[in-house]
């Protein structure tokens, strides 16, 4: 297993484009700390974002995992191209001839995906912890370590998404087209949602059905945290609205994403096995 990771590391780290993207990704993850610095001080209007409670435990786990999940697109580019480049350089052929089995080949990519997800999760944990300890209004241990399921959901979300990228890389064999396909798929899910809502079911059933689609199921893992924010809630109350959303991470949502992950990895392997190079 270490050997497979080392192989992938040599391939990735010597590629300048991948290296730059990986580094910028982690810099961006850290940059969420900069949100703390947002401060308006124009005469009577004083606004300091960090004071609005976004860094309060345990809300910070929800907020930070939701925001940082957007940066995964950077790694998506790296993952799609690490797969597609093997095809365009034909190095996949050489790898197999040199004695890497097809299973090992897919496994080495998947292990890399898992490593990315693990490192990202640890990164977000550490950054959030530091921010929380500085700005949070509540510092009891029991509160700090509550709601950690958001981190777990974040981890699963990344693995699911990256596995999808990996599969697209193998399927399409060209990085640009694979990324295009990813966007197309997003549009497709939106289209399907529209059609179902329009022709078939009411909103709730549509949401439930859409929860089974890959990108939608990943999106569902961590719900938007903004309406949970104290400031937003009070504004809503003033205009007579009351939010009552379900923010929790559900086990069946995790399960759906895990099933998709398994499908993508298996399909990648099956595709590789079936194809002549």
């Amino acid at each position: 297993m270490i050997r497979l990771l080392q192989i992938e590391f040599i391939k990735l780290w010597n590629n300048r484009a991948s290296k730059v993207l990986i580094i910028s990704y982690f810099v961006l993850l850290t940059s969420i700390a900069l949100v703390a610095a947002i401060k308006f001080d124009i005469g009577p209007v004083k606004f300091h974002l960090a004071d609005q409670g976004i860094f309060n435990f345990p809300y910070i786990w929800h907020f930070n995992t939701f925001i940082t999940a957007f940066f995964k697109l950077f790694l998506a580019i790296v993952i799609v191209s690490m797969m597609a480049n093997e095809y365009s350089n034909k190095t996949i052929k050489q790898n197999l001839i040199d004695g890497l089995s097809k299973k090992e080949f897919v496994l080495s990519k998947f292990l890399t995906v898992i490593s990315f997800a693990v490192i990202s999760t640890v990164f977000v944990f550490v950054v959030s912890m530091i921010l929380g300890l500085i700005y949070s209004d509540y510092n009891e241990i029991s509160i700090i370590f509550s709601d950690l399921e958001y981190l777990f959901a974040f981890f699963i979300k990344l693995i699911g998404f990256f596995s999808f990228c990996l599969f697209l890389g193998i399927l399409v064999k060209r990085s640009a087209f694979a990324l295009g396909f990813l966007i197309l798929w997003q549009v497709f899910e939106g289209f399907v949602r529209g059609m179902i809502r329009w022709k078939l079911f009411d909103g709730e059933t549509t949401d439930r059905i859409m929860g089974f689609f890959p990108l939608n199921s990943m999106w569902n893992l961590i719900k938007e945290p903004f309406s949970r924010l104290g400031a937003v809630k009070s504004v809503a109350n003033q205009i007579g609205e009351e939010f009552n959303f379900d923010y929790a991470v559900h086990w069946y949502e995790i399960l759906i994403v895990l099933v998709w992950t398994a499908i993508f990895i298996y399909l990648s392997y099956a595709l590789l096995k079936k194809r002549d190079l």
Binding site: N15, D98, G99
Partner: peptide, 17 residues
Amino acid sequence: HNALKKVGAIIERPNFY
């Protein structure tokens, strides 16, 4: 695949990174 570790092969064009 283990046997191929004891084989040296070059087919068609050289493929490297």
